[in-house]
Design a protein around this nucleic acid. Structure first.
Lengths: 118, 118
DNA sequence: CAGAATCCTGAGAGATACTG
DNA sequence: CAGTATCTCTCAGGATTCTG
């Protein structure tokens, strides 16, 4: 019996780690999830908070995340236009991850500072 | 008073989210953390589990993570060579994040399947 | 077995200008 | 204000070869 080598790319949609990696791959997705974690935010406001992200990049990221089912896009038919992004149901569940990530991130920062590596 | 725009890149080393994003940015870091979460693993074994990662890419990633203080490299002066990677103290703390990520990842997969989007 | 050294490619992100 | 359309460019990652 030859050893079977599993291609990890094929695990997206099956393995929670491979899937998460894919979803969070971008340079901005994690930060966007965090910004939306406390409620809907308008595009312009996101742009400010994520400075120096560019409009094109932000739009691309948000659309991708919408396709991935993480965020919801709410369009108000007003002039001037108003669009708010918020977390979907599954997206909101991600807040648990954000919480543990925040905790660990702070531990990490403290640790590295104490070790003089920051 | 002009509005101050904070550059999120400057938050690395201060904000837990910006910092985590930076650390997990790579295509493989999250998966490597997971593979090492249950104990030391030899390079060759990592290569197999992370197929189709290339040797050069794996080495680069591991060295970066070593610099970041996430993993430890143990060299056994034997012939043939044997090198094991393991999580450092802070690296091991990351297992809490992996746990919540695993939970969420599975929720996500189930949710998307139920919605027929996978 | 582990990894160094090269070269190369492509996808993602930045910059810019324009529209309803 | 939100979004589209291009174009450019960087660099992370892939492929390959070589060594102790």
């Amino acid at each position: 019996m030859a050893e079977q080598l599993v291609n990890v790319h094929d695990l997206v949609g099956r393995c929670p780690y491979a899937t998460s990696q894919k979803l969070l791959a971008g340079k901005w997705s994690l930060l966007i999830m965090h910004e939306l974690s406390e409620g809907p935010v308008r595009v312009r406001e996101l742009e400010r908070r994520l400075y120096p992200i560019t409009q094109a990049t932000l739009t691309r990221a948000l659309r991708q995340m919408e396709d991935d089912g993480l965020v919801h896009r709410e369009v108000y038919g007003t002039i001037p236009p108003k669009v708010e992004y918020s977390l979907t149901e599954v997206g909101a569940e991600f807040k648990a991850v954000l919480a543990s990530l925040e905790k660990w991130g702070n531990q990490y920062i403290d640790y590295m500072k104490a070790a003089g590596r920051i």
